[in-house]
Amino acid sequence: MANSSNHYVAPLDETPLAEVDSVNISAQASNLWLDAWRDMRGRPMFYISGFIIILVALVALFPGWFTQVPPNNDCLLVNSNGAPITGHPLGFTKQGCDVYSRIIHGTSTSLSVGIIVTILTAGLGVLFGAFAGFYGRWLDAILSRVGDIFFAIPYILAAVVIMSVFSSYRNIIIISLAIGLFAWPSTARVLRAEILRVKNADFVMASTAIGVSRFKILMRHVLPNSIAPVIVITTLSLAAAIVAEATLSFLGVGLPTSFMSWGNDISQAQSDLRNAPQTLIYPSLALTITALSFIMMGEVIRNALDPKARARR
């Protein structure tokens, strides 16, 4: 075939030609979220943390499924700081109440605070971050400075002050507001940075040239493409909020003792740490495991959404 001794041509049967740029219809559907979902399902950590989160949610919603012992009524001082006995697997508190039952019934408080704070921080963060990043100019200047002011105040300190001021109105809503109102700026900052990146994409220019309004572009194209890191932060902040509630309760500026919460139990157990460690350890364990599973879930989502992390695995 070669007409010159040093002109090499591969045999055709070894190098079959494909159609230029043919479409592979049979391939799996794929975009960022589908890929992330597929990736998550291949990680054991996703199942472990997912299981714990669902379990915690069930405990919060239906405490009756997990214990028949009333957490407050049947307390007998005879049992004060008592060791575990049949029917009371984790022993008794100083007041003679069942530790296990108190943990089960305190779950809903901790989780509600976590969820309300998360909704609050995500909502405020997305609102401020999206508008500041997308519209820029003076709006960005104003919104970002407002964010900076809140960012400069440590949210635990701010919450302590607010809870002290509203000492007679302490309830789940107030404590959630106290934490959430000062925790949103980090979400806003992350989203703003992401939006600044996405809004310069060519597909935004293409939509502008089509005549799509600015607001629609933000909602339809820019926000969905920049929301991924916010979801990661949100999962992590849920854990942080649960811990924050416990911290405030521990410091004595959280929920009043009439509310059952892990933080309150830990706070009340601290004086008896040496003679009745179970009263401190078990609520702390519940807190740690719950917080950890949300953090692990956040980590799994982050790895799934980050193509670079996916390639490294």
Partner: peptide, 11 residues
């Protein structure tokens, strides 16, 4: 536009 990877919204 030029960049076929950037001019379509990936989502």
């Amino acid at each position: 536009f030029q960049d076929p990877y950037g001019s379509l919204d990936p989502l």
